[in-house]
């Protein structure tokens, strides 16, 4: 579960305040809004990359507002992948595990499982320079999921993809979310993505987030809670 209560964030000359919304556990939420409305800033605040100046962020009931990004256990998929040029695909998938001190055998097992899940088995030994847009995002997704986070934050993960890769990634995201039960928050300005993926529609307008799930009369969160 992701819960924001009256959150205020300042980022350079840009600021948001009084942001409140909530995404039920296991739901796929899509946060939409115009370019420059602050969608990414909200995502960064949740991930611990932007300092929160007011309010509270709770993940699975725990107040994480003052925790470091590394302590929040959120899988983050940034816009253009932001892959590490000095690492192979395999090293991407095991990076978080190595940091956590997993043994070689544990890492190998997890990498094999992950690579199959996101469909990059044939790329494991490769470097990341020259990967296609779709491949890049699969690696970024695998890297974010590697340490089995309960929450996945995606910042316009499909914006740089061609139509075909986009469809594939949408299927992949749906399948992975179903299989892992991860709570996802996906930022986009593309309505089509929201239609295909969202359990919960959130709309950021004039600095406020409101629930815009179609046909739920604005009470999606309540509906989802009942469904749990």
């Amino acid at each position: 579960m992701i819960e924001l209560a009256d959150v205020g964030v300042v980022s350079g000359g840009f600021s948001l305040s009084g942001v409140s919304f909530h995404v039920p556990r296991g739901a796929y939420a899509v946060l939409m809004g115009r370019t420059g409305s602050g969608k990414t800033t909200i995502l960064e605040a949740i991930c611990g990359l932007k300092r929160v100046v007011a309010g509270e962020i709770r993940l699975a009931g725990e107040n994480v507002t003052r925790l470091k990004a590394a302590e929040r256990g959120i899988g983050f998929v940034p816009q253009d992948g932001a892959l590490f040029r000095s690492m192979s695909v395999r090293e991407h998938l095991e990076f978080a595990l190595e940091i956590r001190g997993w043994t070689r055998a544990q890492r190998d097992a997890r990498v094999a499982e992950l690579a199959a899940k996101v469909g990059v088995e044939h790329l494991l030994a490769r470097g990341v320079v020259g990967l296609s847009g779709g491949e890049t995002q699969r690696v970024a997704l695998g890297r974010a999921l590697s340490f089995r986070p309960a929450i996945l934050c995606l910042d316009e993960p499909l914006s740089a993809l061609d139509d075909e890769s986009r469809q594939e990634m949408i299927e992949l995201l749906k399948r992975i979310q179903r299989e892992t039960g991860v709570t996802a928050l996906h930022v986009t300005h593309n309505r089509g993505e929201a239609e295909r993926l969202a359990d919960v529609w959130l709309r950021l307008e004039d600095g406020a987030v409101r629930d815009a799930t179609p046909g739920a009369g604005g009470s999606t969160n309540a509906r989802m809670q009942k469904a749990e």
């Binding site: 960064e44 991930c47 990004a69 959120i74 940034p78 816009q79 932001a82």
Partner: peptide
């Protein structure tokens, strides 16, 4: 080198130094 990469590393469990 985009700062984004470091931020991703942080979310993966790294300290600033790592």
């Amino acid at each position: 080198i985009p700062f984004r990469k470091e931020e991703v590393a942080l979310t993966l469990g790294c300290t600033r130094g790592q």
